[in-house]
């Protein structure tokens, strides 16, 4: 397939775990285009595997 070349300039974020997602959301909140690249089939990283987080015991997802 022919490569696509995007217009404009954004930020590339490598890793779709909690850190990558947070960085992407902050950039997007400031109206910056983001490409969020994750090698696994889903976002979420390690955090999605956890049951709860302490000390607030919120659901990790």
């Amino acid at each position: 397939m022919a490569p696509r070349l995007s217009k404009g300039s954004g930020v590339l974020v490598i890793g779709g775990g909690i850190a990558g997602i947070q960085a992407a959301l902050d950039l997007a909140a400031s109206r910056v285009k983001v490409y969020l690249v994750e090698k696994a089939p889903s976002l979420g990283g390690r955090m999605a595997q956890l049951d709860k987080t302490f000390p607030t015991m919120d659901c990790a997802i």
Partner: peptide
């Protein structure tokens, strides 16, 4: 996670990896 998935300014590319990066700050081609 859901928020990133549905944000119009975020392209989520899963099952993907960066294989090449050229250029410099302000102007990288990935």
């Amino acid at each position: 996670m859901m928020d990133a998935g549905r944000h119009p300014l975020i392209d989520v590319l899963t099952n993907s990896e960066l294989v090449h990066l050229e250029g410099e700050a302000h102007n990288f081609t990935a």
